[in-house]
Design a protein around this nucleic acid. Structure first.
Lengths: 210, 210
DNA sequence: GGTTGTCCTGGTCGATTGTCCAAGTCAAGT
DNA sequence: ACTTGACTTGGACAATCGACCAGGACAACC
């Protein structure tokens, strides 16, 4: 095999761990399986990572980042009325989820594992801090492109968004009913629209005054 | 130790497995740990269960039943207006959840494990079929005691309820913020009230006609 | 060309796991 | 009292795991 500087080898092993764990579950991501997936001999893993836990933490960090990029990457916004903006945002979000079943399931496995094993202590809370922040960014986006503000505190609303997406995603992982998940999320989107108050009047007035 | 007929011994072992797994996680529920928790020697487990998987399936069935009983057991209903009924139902439900952190986390561990391991294939879908049915029963209850019907199909609404409760529960398991979870669920309850249409007129009319 | 340090090899170790078994114990029925 | 069958015991087994190490291979630099 070709020699690599340790930093690049780490990235490769993280990718391999992600592939194994997404495909076969977190329990299948043994040191040996990861080494085999990367086409590397056993000792390399312990040369690049002190622990198996350090590898898992790095993998968790990687998948969390990937999830956030996927959530915020697309978002084509053309419409301006709140209902349409929210609908298209949810559609893009849900499409991203349903196309990554393995990583999605792995995320929940990581969350529960983190809550049980002290070595992965910070993983779960980092996942959710990231998701809550991402949800707030989505709220910002809708605010700006639909010219609305929210009648509910942003933090509360962001937490609700994450909870609802989590809940429907989990149910979809179990029974595979994509239509039910999509419909449920769109129903939540219509609720979201009811707590969006048109800010055009006050905003325009403020802009005019300035 | 005292001798027991195999049926009772099975129940005892299921309880022991539930205790170990709720306290230390599903991975800690090894055959040896369960036997030790029950104060029984190693071979007894394989005398009562063919597999470790059969024990885990029995444990999953037990915790699912327990969760459903907990969700439907209490529910003190005095108020008659939809908002109050829904509020008290959600309060009781959330109280039940926050007082059983271990079993709640174990439920999610079982769900993800079921989705990865073929031996636990049916566990997750049974969990959710039970929860969806329970949510429909709660909707029935609210219907009858608040004299409303729903402007959204029951199945859809039940699925949404389970998703929202799941989502907020998971977030609470991660960051432990009980107030945020309670507020979020009550906010969802107020949304639920908006899709409840007062059926008193038609119901009374129908009753009068009959 | 020799030296130094980085990177890789593949085998070994102890611990833990699920599974199995030969033997022991005890209560019930004859 | 004795036999039968149900229940229990505790050790042994192979498999798998994370961790470790002595040494080989290679590139870069003096």
């Amino acid at each position: 095999m070709n020699r690599l500087p340790v930093a690049e080898r780490r990235e490769q092993l993280i990718e391999a761990a992600l592939a194994v764990a997404s495909r076969d579950g977190i329990d299948a991501a043994t040191v040996r399986a990861v080494a085999a997936e990367a086409g590397v001999s056993l000792g390399v893993v312990h040369y690049c990572f002190q622990d198996k836990d350090e590898l898992l933490r790095a993998m968790a960090h990687a998948i969390t980042s990937a999830n956030l990029e996927r959530s915020l990457g697309e978002l084509p916004l053309e419409a301006t009325d709140p209902e349409s903006v929210i609908e298209s945002v949810i559609d893009a979000l849900w499409t991203g989820i349903r196309e990554s079943r393995g990583p999605q399931l792995l995320s929940y496995e990581l969350t529960t594992s983190s809550l049980r094993h002290a070595e992965l202590n910070q993983v779960a809370i980092e996942q959710y801090r990231g998701q809550w922040a991402a949800a707030e960014q989505v709220l910002d986006l809708v605010e700006r492109s639909a010219h609305v503000s929210w009648s509910v505190p942003r933090g509360t609303l962001a937490r609700t968004i994450v909870a609802v997406v989590d809940g429907f995603s989990l149910a979809w992982l179990v029974d595979g009913d994509s239509e039910a998940a999509r419909n449920g999320l769109q129903g939540f989107g219509r609720f979201l629209a009811t707590v969006a108050i048109p800010a055009s009047l006050e905003a325009d007035a403020a802009a005019t005054l300035a």
